[in-house]
Computed example of a mutant assay.
Amino acid sequence: MAETIAIDETNRLISSDKVDGTTVYDRQGEKLGSVRNFMVDKRSGKAEYAVLQFGGIFGIGSEYYPLPWDMLTYDTNLGGYVVEISKERLEAAPRYEERAEPEYDHIYGRQVYGYWGVPYPFV
């Protein structure tokens, strides 16, 4: 009989459907929001952004904040991602409302990465 292959999660990899909804915490362990989805470059396969759902009540009135993927660190103890940002800094960050998703082009990418002080690695 064939050995079962892990398709949801391994020591190093996680299925995209398991990332959606994962909690995002600040360094103090306070919940900031959750990952709504993440954006992957079609050619390189590299995740560029985690889109953080933040604010609102029960998802109503939430806004969406693209964070450069490399800003997130997975914490196995918390079972979620940790970012080195404050709630106040997040509230002033580039964001959009539901059904108003921006054009994820290089101009927008430079704006988002620039806000967070992360070098924009894409041409």
Score class of each variant (00 low, 15 high):
residue 1 M to L: 11
residue 1 M to R: 12
residue 2 A to G: 08
residue 3 E to H: 12
residue 4 T to Q: 10
residue 10 T to F: 06
residue 12 R to K: 14
residue 14 I to H: 02
residue 15 S to P: 00
residue 15 S to L: 08
residue 15 S to R: 09
residue 15 S to Y: 07
residue 16 S to K: 13
residue 17 D to W: 13
residue 18 K to A: 14
residue 18 K to T: 13
residue 19 V to K: 01
residue 19 V to I: 15
residue 19 V to Q: 03
residue 19 V to D: 03
residue 20 D to N: 06
residue 22 T to D: 04
residue 22 T to A: 15
residue 24 V to G: 06
residue 24 V to N: 07
residue 25 Y to S: 02
residue 26 D to C: 06
residue 26 D to V: 04
residue 27 R to V: 13
residue 28 Q to V: 06
residue 29 G to L: 05
residue 29 G to R: 04
residue 30 E to N: 15
residue 30 E to R: 15
residue 31 K to G: 02
residue 32 L to G: 04
residue 33 G to K: 03
residue 33 G to F: 00
residue 34 S to T: 14
residue 36 R to V: 01
residue 36 R to A: 12
residue 37 N to M: 10
residue 37 N to F: 09
residue 38 F to C: 12
residue 38 F to W: 13
residue 39 M to F: 13
residue 39 M to W: 15
residue 40 V to E: 12
residue 41 D to F: 01
residue 41 D to T: 01
residue 42 K to C: 09
residue 43 R to E: 14
residue 43 R to D: 13
residue 43 R to K: 13
residue 44 S to V: 04
residue 44 S to Y: 05
residue 45 G to Y: 05
residue 46 K to A: 14
residue 46 K to D: 15
residue 46 K to T: 12
residue 47 A to P: 07
residue 47 A to C: 11
residue 48 E to V: 09
residue 49 Y to E: 01
residue 49 Y to M: 00
residue 50 A to V: 06
residue 50 A to S: 11
residue 51 V to C: 02
residue 52 L to P: 03
residue 52 L to S: 04
residue 53 Q to H: 07
residue 53 Q to E: 15
residue 54 F to V: 15
residue 57 I to A: 10
residue 62 S to E: 11
residue 67 L to C: 02
residue 70 D to Q: 15
residue 71 M to W: 00
residue 72 L to E: 04
residue 73 T to A: 11
residue 73 T to L: 06
residue 74 Y to T: 07
residue 75 D to S: 15
residue 76 T to N: 11
residue 78 L to T: 04
residue 78 L to F: 09
residue 79 G to V: 09
residue 80 G to Q: 05
residue 80 G to A: 08
residue 80 G to H: 06
residue 81 Y to W: 14
residue 83 V to P: 09
residue 89 R to C: 01
residue 89 R to F: 04
residue 89 R to Q: 08
residue 89 R to N: 05
residue 89 R to V: 05
residue 91 E to F: 08
residue 91 E to H: 12
residue 93 A to I: 01
residue 94 P to F: 03
residue 95 R to C: 10
residue 96 Y to K: 03
residue 98 E to L: 15
residue 99 R to I: 02
residue 100 A to V: 02
residue 101 E to I: 00
residue 101 E to C: 04
residue 102 P to V: 00
residue 102 P to W: 00
residue 103 E to P: 00
residue 103 E to Q: 10
residue 107 I to K: 07
residue 107 I to H: 07
residue 108 Y to I: 02
residue 109 G to K: 02
residue 111 Q to S: 08
residue 111 Q to N: 11
residue 112 V to E: 04
residue 113 Y to E: 03
residue 113 Y to F: 14
residue 114 G to N: 09
residue 114 G to W: 05
residue 114 G to Q: 06
residue 115 Y to F: 15
residue 116 W to I: 03
residue 117 G to C: 11
residue 117 G to E: 10
residue 119 P to G: 07
residue 119 P to A: 14
residue 120 Y to N: 02
residue 122 F to T: 09
residue 122 F to P: 01
residue 123 V to Y: 13
residue 123 V to F: 10
